[in-house]
Design a protein around this nucleic acid. Structure first.
Lengths: 206, 206
DNA sequence: TAGATTGTTAATCGATTAACAATC
DNA sequence: TAGATTGTTAATCGATTAACAATC
């Protein structure tokens, strides 16, 4: 693997390649090419080759890439060749859906805790979890050494909760609240806001 | 508004500006500057000014931007100064959460239908909706002239459902299935996959 | 007037693409 | 050998930033 700093825009494409490779593997395919991958993910073959070559020579001229081998390398690079414990904060409908979602397991993540501050929710069962009181969140998350959180609290609460999470040692936040979080630049944040995504498309309609 | 083709990367930032402006308006603020916006959204002030100036001169030297005026212009540009009817396809937990989500209304979207193909779900109430049979999806969506769909079916079904949606006249798909959709380039697709977002962050951990 | 901030230009920076030698 | 496809270079293309005149 190259020690030079790899641009974030390249890192952002690797999970997309990995997901496509996992699908190909499920279908029983054993090799692929940058051109075939390109057709699946909508990124040019030249760019796929260039992205991958940042980290090593994982292909063979004439035959392309071994799907299992390349997927393993990408998992290694992305550090998802292990399981990450994840906490869900906010036990609304979205928090429920995320904590019961089956699709994380084979992609490196395992939800292990679910928090809320609503007395009517605390203690309730959600799938295999019991909703825990956010009053204990900081110590629980620090104690379990959790670095990744999915945040599904209302926008008005999101910044305050994020501050507490950082205090608890969390380094990566997947923020579902429709608000920009202010965090130190040692903390990684990704935003998911369906309305934002919809508004990116309406510009092009009619 | 400028008739030149505006790069998609700029269009993609406008909803983020708009969301920040809406929050500012809620707080009772009346004007802002590119610098203040920059602090909120994490995009440089120069870039914010350049992005906005693609569409007109909406600010005033010395004082900045009127929040309400600029928000109105952005809504106009993004075509969310109207309501778009949206259908949710897939009545799993995520489909439930999306069809009951309160946050779409003041951002230009209104969920009006919910589909599934599971006989045990069809006819059930979900919030204010009755789950409809996907067998009728094409005619229902075409009849209601719906152009935007949120797709929350399993990955294995997503491509086939997307094909039917396109046949029904849908032009924009917000795809929650963890798979790349293959669509003609007249159709707009945005992907939301929490595992992809999480994997973009693990690269930087420890 | 003095201070602040826009809109825009030109310079810089970075990302993408095209092309091809190397080689399986 | 012939065909295919990688990894990489150089060229192109596009996006970001810095700077500042204009002006509120």
């Amino acid at each position: 693997m190259n020690a030079d700093k790899v641009p974030d825009i390249i890192i952002g494409r690797l999970p997309v390649y990995l997901r496509a490779l996992q699908r190909m593997a499920e279908k029983g395919m054993s090799t692929t090419s940058s051109q075939e991958l390109s057709a699946h993910v909508g990124i040019s073959a030249a760019q796929i080759r260039k992205d991958i070559s940042q980290f090593g020579e994982f292909g063979k001229q004439g035959t392309g890439y071994s799907i299992l081998f390349l997927a393993d390398r990408l998992r290694e690079i992305l550090k998802v060749n292990r399981m990450w414990d994840v906490a869900v904060v906010g036990a609304g409908e979205l928090g429920h859906a995320l904590s019961r979602y089956q699709g994380f397991t084979d992609r490196g993540f395992c939800v292990v805790m679910l928090f809320d501050n609503d007395p009517f929710k605390i203690g309730r069962n959600v799938g295999e979890f019991v909703v825990e009181d956010s009053a204990n969140m900081v110590e629980r998350i620090r104690g379990a050494n959790i670095k990744i959180v999915m945040l599904t609290v209302p926008a008005a609460a999101a910044q305050a909760v994020a501050d507490k999470l950082i205090q608890a040692g969390v380094k990566a936040i997947l923020n579902y609240a429709p608000i920009s979080l202010n965090v130190p630049d040692t903390i990684h944040v990704q935003h998911i806001d369906p309305a934002i995504h919809l508004q990116r498309m309406t510009y092009y309609l009619t």
